[in-house]
Amino acid sequence: MPDSVLVAYGTTNGSTARIAEAIADVLRKEGLTAEARPARSVESVTSYDAVVVGGGLYAGRWHKDARRFVRRYRRDLDERPLWLFSSGPLDPSASERDIPPVPGVKKAMDQLDAREHVTFGGCLEEGAKGWVARMILRSGKGGDFRDFTAIEAWVARIGSELAGATFERS
């Protein structure tokens, strides 16, 4: 049974980081060793049995740190179970229906044979960095649309899948 999971993420204002921490917390409750880390700070994935990668969505693209992470470690990621998530819609749509991955994430899924991708609602609150973020907040479209119950349910499925898995790491 695999027992060590990396949850790597790309975030600008911390919303995706909070989702990644929640994912790691649930995996630990499932009996796994899990670590949430900013994607840009990861130096290797070889010590992990499985990986979850997430990124905030900005103008239809995954956060640059998440994109760079999957490119940098593509060979190692191809050798272990991989799940992807996005965070971003600033409305309840992610809780109401499945939102397909944006094209760049879909390409990564296909190239790396990722097990699954899910899009969670985003969070944009006062004090957010960036001109676009401030404009969105000024227009009244900010808020917290993260559904931690849905996040926990998704991660519990990952934990169950990993608990039943046996595989060799090269």
Rank of each mutant, 00 (worst) to 15 (best):
L57F: 02
Y73I: 00
G31D: 04
E30P: 04
R74Q: 13
S86L: 08
A66C: 07
S15D: 14
V52I: 15
D65K: 00
R28C: 11
V53G: 05
R61K: 14
L57W: 01
D25N: 12
D78M: 12
L57P: 00
A24I: 10
K29C: 10
R75Q: 11
W83L: 02
R37K: 14
F69S: 03
V51A: 02
R75M: 02
S15L: 02
L32C: 08
A20I: 09
E21L: 12
A17H: 11
D76F: 00
Y9M: 07
L27A: 03
R75Y: 04
R37C: 07
T46D: 15
V52M: 08
T46F: 03
A24Y: 11
Y73E: 01
F85Q: 05
V51F: 00
A20P: 10
E79R: 09
I19N: 10
Y9W: 09
G31M: 05
S44M: 02
D65F: 02
D25M: 08
R72W: 01
V42L: 07
E21Q: 15
R80N: 03
A36W: 05
K64F: 11
S41T: 15
Y48W: 11
V26H: 03
G54C: 06
S44V: 04
R37Q: 15
F69T: 01
V26D: 11
R18P: 06
R74N: 10
G14L: 01
E79L: 10
D25L: 10
Y9G: 08
A36C: 03
V5G: 06
I19F: 08
S41Y: 09
V45D: 07
Y9S: 06
T46M: 09
A8I: 06
P81R: 07
F69Q: 02
T11N: 08
R61Q: 13
V42D: 07
Y9I: 06
G10A: 03
V7S: 08
A17C: 08
P2E: 01
S41V: 10
G60I: 03
R75E: 10
A34Q: 10
T46A: 13
A50M: 01
E21W: 07
R28E: 15
Y9V: 03
D3I: 10
T33Q: 15
R28P: 03
H63D: 12
F69M: 01
D3K: 14
V5M: 07
V7D: 06
L6E: 12
R71K: 15
A24S: 13
V52G: 03
Y9H: 11
D78Q: 13
F69L: 04
G54D: 06
A17K: 15
E35W: 12
D3W: 10
V70R: 01
K29G: 11
V7E: 07
A39M: 05
R68D: 14
G55W: 02
L32M: 14
K29W: 09
A34G: 11
L84K: 01
R80F: 03
